[in-house]
């Protein structure tokens, strides 16, 4: 999650202190991914180390304000101007679960898919209900919140469609005699060096 860039972008509007940053982040994202204060301070430490923010004045109430540097402002512009690249690095738990499940003997994949589908649809129902209970946005905070809800709705919909698709794919694979479980590979890879080199070393 781009907490770092988000906080930086908020600081680009003016100096803030830790708790204030947390509140600003939450109200701009519908409190969907609440941050704890520890995360805020850790992030601010790293931003300061990288020269993107610096400590500002301490006000009468003793609040430690942080302000953005020119390098920080440049990074915000960069962030807003470039796409978010979804990397393969974030593991998709569900894709992994299904991929493993099809290779195992004695697993009813159709049931695994159905259990997931029911859960996904329930989420989608709740999101839809939440969205339908809201009229047109009346503030920019509500607008931001609706954008987040919409995004969650589309993600849940995509998941439901992927499950349907997987079910079809599985049925076709079954009909073609594929989709057999994978037995454990008896050629167990050796620890450390690749097997070939190990054999060569012994000789």
């Amino acid at each position: 999650m781009s907490v770092r860039q988000s906080l930086l972008a908020i600081l680009n509007q003016g100096p803030c202190y830790g708790y204030q940053l947390r509140a600003e982040f939450d109200r701009r994202t519908g409190s969907t991914w609440p941050l704890n204060v520890g995360q805020i301070y850790n992030t601010l430490d790293r931003l300061e180390r990288d020269g993107l923010v610096r400590k500002a004045d301490i006000d009468a109430d003793g609040q430690n304000y942080v302000e953005i540097t020119d390098a920080g402002s440049a990074e915000v512009a960069d962030w807003l101007g470039s796409p978010v690249v979804r990397t393969m690095a974030t593991r998709d738990e569900l894709a992994i679960k299904l991929a493993i499940a099809v290779t195992l003997p004695g697993v009813d994949i159709a049931q695994v898919i159905q259990v997931q589908r029911t859960a996904t649809m329930r989420t989608l129902q709740e999101l839809t209900r939440t969205k339908n209970a809201t009229a047109d946005p009346e503030s920019s905070e509500q607008l931001a919140w609706l954008l987040v809800i919409d995004s969650l709705i589309f993600a849940a919909e995509a998941e439901a469609r992927w499950l349907d698709h997987s079910e079809h794919r599985l049925a076709r694979a079954r009909a073609a005699g594929l989709a057999e479980p994978l037995p454990l590979n008896t050629e167990v890879p050796k620890r450390g060096r690749p097997a070939k080199t190990a054999a060569a070393a012994r000789a």
């Binding site: 409190s31 969907t32 159905q114 589908r117 029911t118 859960a119 329930r122 209970a133 503030s139 809800i149």
Partner: peptide, 19 residues
Amino acid sequence: IVDESRASAVTSLLSGLPA
């Protein structure tokens, strides 16, 4: 009918709605 999904009466998400 192999399964059923029922939306819960109270949704937890609505609490996130800003005033």
